[in-house]
Simulated assay, not measured.
Amino acid sequence: MLDHDAIAARHAELLSLMMGEARQSDAYRSLDDHEGQRLLIDAHGYHLTYVERGQESRRRTTHDVDELLFWFLEQTTFSIGCAHEFANRVEGPDFRRMVHAKQRELFARLDPIWRARLEAWISAILAEHPYLDRL
């Protein structure tokens, strides 16, 4: 298993490729003990925890470092996609169409395996929560 520093280095490398400029990783660092996300590593795997008001609200666990890195990248691209959609809002189509398009654009800068992982992620979301376009 990789340690925090090795994960941060790989994450920064992927972010830099995706964004076209040097980036630092802070995806697993919590600002304080009461809010944010943390990466815990132990014999049971990588645990991405989310803390709100001092209480753990969610935890995802994996043994696959690429899955962990995907979670970080998906969060980042979703935020970028939301900002892009807000700045370019079009009334009618579900806002996620533009968000997902931006995510696809960014993930396309990585190898096809990362893009396929994103497509599977988006498909799973849409299977449960389809686009809701307004006419």
Rank of each mutant, 00 (worst) to 15 (best):
Y46W: 06
R10W: 01
G36N: 08
L69I: 02
H129N: 14
T62A: 06
A83T: 06
V99Y: 04
D111I: 01
V51K: 06
P112H: 09
V65M: 02
R59P: 04
Y46Q: 04
G92K: 08
M18G: 08
I122Q: 12
A12V: 03
M18Q: 09
P93L: 03
E21T: 09
H4P: 00
L132P: 01
F86Y: 11
E85M: 13
V51L: 08
H34A: 13
Y50R: 12
I7L: 13
E56G: 04
Y28Q: 04
H34G: 06
L40D: 11
A124M: 04
M19G: 00
H100W: 15
L132I: 08
M98C: 07
Y28T: 00
I122L: 12
W114V: 02
K102T: 15
A108S: 15
R10K: 15
Y50Q: 14
F95W: 12
F72M: 04
V51Y: 06
S16N: 06
P112S: 09
D94P: 10
A108I: 01
R89G: 00
G92Q: 08
D3K: 06
I41Q: 08
I113T: 14
M19K: 05
E35S: 09
R23E: 15
D64V: 01
V90L: 08
F72D: 10
F107M: 14
Y131R: 03
L106C: 13
L110F: 05
H11R: 03
A12C: 09
S25H: 01
L15I: 01
E119F: 02
H47M: 09
W121Q: 10
L14G: 06
V90F: 00
A124C: 02
L17P: 00
H11W: 04
E128S: 11
H44R: 14
W71A: 06
V90E: 11
R38K: 14
L17V: 03
D26V: 01
F86G: 03
E52Q: 14
D3E: 13
H4W: 10
H47F: 03
D64I: 00
L48H: 13
R134C: 09
R29V: 12
D26W: 03
I113L: 11
A43N: 10
T62M: 05
D64R: 01
I80T: 06
D66E: 14
E105M: 13
H63E: 12
E56C: 12
T49L: 10
